[in-house]
C-alpha cells in the first residue's frame, strides 16, 4: 500500500469525505446508544434537542462554546506556526486568577475594573507561554513537554491559593475565591437572557485573528514560519521573534477564556472552573483545520455535543461519556477524511 498525492482534489472529495466523516460519527453514536440499551434514533434526537431544541438549550450551548472559542483560537494561532501549545489549560487558569485578583482585591469601580481585568488576564496568559517559547527558541527545549507540565503546576498552584491566601473567608470552608462585585462582571448581551458579553468578545477575537492571519505581515510571518522555518529564516523573517509574538497572542487568547468564565459566568475562581477547556480547545482547533472562523463553528458543535449529551443522559439514561467518545471519533474520522482529500491509497 502506498499514498499518492492528489494535486487538485475533486469537489466530491473535499465536500463528500468530511460529510462522510460526520455520518460515520453519528453511526458510532447510535451504536453506542444501542449498547447502552437505548433507542439509537431517540438518543440522537435527544442530543440534538438538548443542544438546540429550546431557547434555554441554545443559550446553554452558546455559553459553553464561549471558552472553547477562546482556547480553540489560542491553539489554532499557535499550531499555525507549528508552536505546539498544549498549555492552554494553564493559561486559562492564570487568566482567571488575575481576573479575580484584580476584581476583588483592588476595589476599583466596574467600568475601570473590567478592562483592567481583561488586560491583566491577557498579559498573564501571554507571560505563562513566554517561558516555554523562550526555552524552545534559545535552548531547543520541546514546548510540548514544558507547556503540558505547566498545566499541572498551575492546577496545584491554584489549589494552594484557594486553600490559602485567596480562600473566600465567607465560603463556608469551600476552596473558592471571594466573588467579584456585581459591577465587575460582564453584562448580559440581552437583558434577561443568560448569555454574557464573553461570547461577543469571543466572536470579535475570532474575527480579529482571521484578519491578523490573512491581512497583516505578522500573519504572513506566522504562516511562513509554520510551513517552512528554514525558508522563512533564509528570506529574512526573524523566526525566533515570530514564535515569541505567536506565543504571546496564543497565551493571551487562552487567558481570555478564564477571564470570560469568571467575569461572565461563575463570578469566582474554583479549582474546577475548567472541565478541560484547554485540552478540548485542541479538538476544536483541529476540527476547524486551524481556521479562526471555523473555530467558532467547531466550538459550537463541540459545545452542542456536550450540552446535548448532558440533557440526553438525564432523559434516556445513557451515560454522558458518550459525548467524549463522540468527539474523539469525530476528530479521528475528520482527520482521516482530510488526509484522504490530499492523498489516495494505491496498492503496490
Amino acid at each position: 500500500m502506498r499514498l499518492d498525492p492528489i494535486t487538485t482534489p475533486s469537489p466530491a472529495r473535499t465536500v463528500g469525505l468530511p460529510a462522510l466523516a460526520l455520518g460515520a460519527t453519528v453511526l458510532v453514536a447510535m451504536g453506542l446508544a444501542l449498547i447502552a440499551g437505548a433507542d439509537p434514533l431517540a438518543t440522537l434526537g435527544l442530543i440534538v434537542k438538548g443542544a438546540a431544541g429550546s431557547k434555554f438549550a441554545l443559550l446553554e450551548t452558546l455559553n459553553r462554546a464561549t471558552p472553547l472559542i477562546f482556547t480553540g483560537l489560542a491553539i489554532s494561532v499557535a499550531f499555525r506556526a507549528k508552536l505546539w501549545n498544549i498549555g492552554a489549560e494553564a493559561q486559562l487558569y492564570v487568566g482567571a486568577l488575575v481576573t479575580v485578583v484584580i476584581g476583588t482585591q483592588l476595589g476599583l469601580p466596574g467600568p475601570l475594573a473590567l478592562p483592567l481585568m481583561a488586560l491583566g488576564a491577557v498579559l498573564a496568559g501571554a507571560l505563562v507561554l513566554l517561558g516555554p517559547v523562550l526555552l524552545k527558541t534559545r535552548l531547543g527545549v520541546d514546548e510540548v513537554v514544558t507547556t503540558l507540565l505547566l498545566n499541572f503546576i498551575m492546577a496545584l498552584f491554584i489549589s494552594y491559593l484557594l486553600e490559602g491566601p485567596l480562600k473566600d473567608p465567607m465560603g463556608m470552608g469551600w476552596p473558592k475565591s471571594p466573588a467579584l462585585p456585581r459591577d465587575a462582571r460582564l453584562p448580559r448581551i440581552v437583558e434577561g437572557l443568560r448569555l454574557h458579553w464573553g461570547f461577543g468578545l469571543a466572536l470579535i477575537s475570532a474575527l480579529g485573528v482571521w484578519i491578523m492571519q490573512t491581512r497583516t505581515t505578522l500573519g504572513y510571518e506566522i504562516r511562513a514560519t509554520g510551513l517552512n522555518p528554514e525558508a522563512a529564516r533564509f528570506a529574512g523573517i526573524p523566526v525566533g521573534r515570530v514564535l515569541v509574538k505567536t506565543a504571546l497572542i496564543s497565551g493571551g487568547l487562552a487567558a481570555l477564556a478564564g477571564f470570560s468564565e469568571v467575569a461572565g459566568l461563575k463570578g469566582n475562581l474554583t479549582a474546577d472552573l475548567s472541565p478541560g477547556f484547554g485540552y478540548t480547545g485542541i479538538v476544536v482547533a483541529m476540527l476547524a483545520l486551524l481556521h479562526p472562523l471555523g473555530v467558532v463553528v467547531s466550538a459550537l458543535f463541540v459545545a452542542g455535543v456536550f450540552v446535548g449529551a448532558d440533557s440526553m443522559s438525564r432523559a434516556a439514561g445513557v451515560p454522558t461519556y458518550i459525548a467524549d467518545i463522540l468527539l474523539a471519533t469525530a476528530l479521528l474520522f475528520m482527520v482521516l477524511a482530510i488526509l484522504l482529500t490530499k492523498v489516495r491509497v494505491v496498492r503496490g
Partner: peptide, 27 residues
C-alpha cells in the same frame, strides 16, 4: 520557496514587509 505558499506569496518572500507589498504591517 515555501511549498504550500502560492506563487504570489513566494514571489514577495524577501520583501513582504516593504512597500508596495506592505505598509505599516498591513499586506
Amino acid at each position: 520557496t515555501i511549498a504550500d505558499f502560492t506563487l504570489t506569496e513566494n514571489a514577495v518572500l524577501e520583501r513582504y514587509a516593504q512597500p508596495p507589498v506592505a505598509r505599516r504591517g498591513w499586506m
